[in-house]
Design a binder for these strands. Structure first.
Length: 451
DNA sequence: CTTATTACCTGTCTTTGT
DNA sequence: ATTCACAAAGACAGGTAA
């Protein structure tokens, strides 16, 4: 444990909403809600004006609309947020090289890494103010709240105490008494489930937690969580600030506007998701051995199915093939509201194909001319690639009753807009059918024989 | 009515090594 | 060749959290 409050936690205030207000002055001073705008959307960030009406992060957009109908409801613009985030993080790194981003709008900074030591509360307050000024300058006026203390735990809790635009520095040596009167839920890692279990043991505040016997705590919440909580309750926290943390999994998931029962449509979606996961793996120079398919049923129960390959891959065809099999093993029941594909057990080295040379051959692409006047159901299957002269590349989501529904995907807007065409639309002329998968990657169940 | 993404933990099996 | 014992490691599914 260090002797000065040299760990900072910086949290940009209502980040997504603040960026929108910055870029669109007419929104300033007004309630702004950023998040999913569809029927099943949820709120990512609400501006402080919207929070007055009880709009909160993670609330369904439907509920937000009923609480605050006159707010501006905006879909997220991640590229813009990423850009501002980068600029802000750069200011932090100018202050100290040891910066650990937690998300686009949050980071820890360890001031000792820049050679500072023996910092007083006043020193740190001045540093925090300077940082906030710098952030405001590079970001076009965004404000941040900063907490500082002798550990990540204290810094993180402190940054929450004077929002927005605040600075809270907790003097070294006062940590346990600082925490004691607070609810246990202020401790990161104590969510609803843990809070419930603790409350059954009569523990509501950190002071209660400080008095609870460690063995009893472990009985309630498990060994790993229990012993770490026992230490955090008395502010014993020596977790280092770590920059450049390694990615451990890459995944994509999508909640559908309406539940899907059609297995062939699910397969088509899983194929798309496998491709996106593979692209991201390749971009990050990663490959992984475990493929996971996640399904969320109409009743919100969630299931995962996973399979581990003999060696790591970043090949979309391999991922898609495993995902298909896992999907086949999954129940569809009364419909699926969410589907996801992920890859984990990552290796930072790319798979060397030792004996599978011809496998990178391009998948056969067949251009098929449609009949001039198709009637119903003319050879459209979910997953077919399709070209449209105005909208570009899309793929068939479904068809029937003289219409074809096509989903267009761009790198920017992954699920992409859905458009429906009459099946005899002259613009729908070319359908690309990507050939079925060919090659093989050995999976777990290979036969190994020993001498 | 209830997002998307990542990380980590736990209980239960299964595999591997000796 | 088969079995047992035992530990360590890995795989898998579900849960919790930010």
């Amino acid at each position: 444990m260090r002797g000065d409050p040299s760990v900072l936690h910086v949290d940009l205030d209502a980040f997504f909403a603040a960026v929108e207000q910055r870029d669109k002055p007419s929104l300033r001073g007004k309630p702004v809600v950023v998040g999913g705008v569809g029927v099943r959307g949820v709120v990512s960030t609400a501006s402080y004006e919207a929070r007055k009406y009880g709009v909160r992060s993670a609330m369904s957009t439907a509920e937000a609309r009923s609480r605050c109908p006159h707010a501006a409801y905006l879909g997220p613009r991640f590229e813009v947020y990423r850009q501002s985030s980068r600029a802000v993080m750069a200011e932090m790194r100018a202050l100290s090289p040891l910066v650990e981003p937690l998300s686009l709008d949050e980071a820890f900074i360890d001031l000792t890494a820049s050679g500072l030591s023996g910092l007083t509360v006043d020193d740190v307050e001045a540093i925090a103010q300077d940082l906030k000024d710098a952030i405001r300058k590079v970001s076009g006026g965004l404000t941040a709240s900063v907490g500082a203390g002798t550990s990540k735990l204290i810094a993180k809790i402190a940054s929450d105490l004077d929002k927005p635009d605040g600075v809270v520095v907790v003097p070294a040596g006062t940590e346990a008494e600082f925490l004691a009167p607070m609810q246990v839920t202020v401790i990161p890692g104590v969510g609803p489930a843990t809070a419930q279990r603790l409350s059954m043991a009569g523990v509501r505040t950190v002071a209660d937690l400080q008095q609870l016997d460690e063995d009893e705590l472990i009985r309630q919440v498990g060994s790993a969580h229990g012993s770490s909580l026992h230490r955090l309750a008395v502010a014993a926290d020596d977790r280092p600030v770590v920059s450049d943390r390694e990615t451990k999994s890459v995944s994509v998931e999508d909640t559908f506007e309406t539940d899907i029962i059609d297995r062939s449509l699910l397969v088509a979606i899983a194929d798309r998701m496998s491709l996106r996961v593979a692209e991201r793996l390749q971009k990050a120079q990663l490959s992984g051995r475990t493929v996971t398919v996640k399904t969320r049923m109409h009743d919100f129960t969630t299931h995962t199915r996973s399979s581990t390959l003999a060696g790591p891959t970043d090949d979309s065809r391999v991922i898609a093939r495993v995902a298909r099999r896992l999907l086949e093993e999954s129940e569809v029941g009364g419909g699926i509201r969410l589907l996801g594909v992920g890859v984990s057990s990552l290796a930072d080295w790319i798979q060397d194909d030792l004996f599978t040379e011809d496998e990178h051959a391009e998948a056969p692409v067949e251009i098929v001319e449609l009949p001039a006047r198709p009637r119903d159901q003319l050879g459209f299957h979910p997953g077919q690639d399709i070209a449209h002269p105005d909208y570009g590349q899309g793929w068939v989501w479904g068809s029937g009753r003289g219409r074809v529904t096509v989903r267009f995907e761009t790198a920017d807007t992954p699920p992409g807009p859905v458009r429906t065409f009459a099946i005899d639309d002259p613009a729908l002329t070319k359908v690309r059918i990507i050939g079925a998968d060919a090659d093989d990657e050995p999976e777990t169940d290979q036969n190994v024989s020993n001498e």
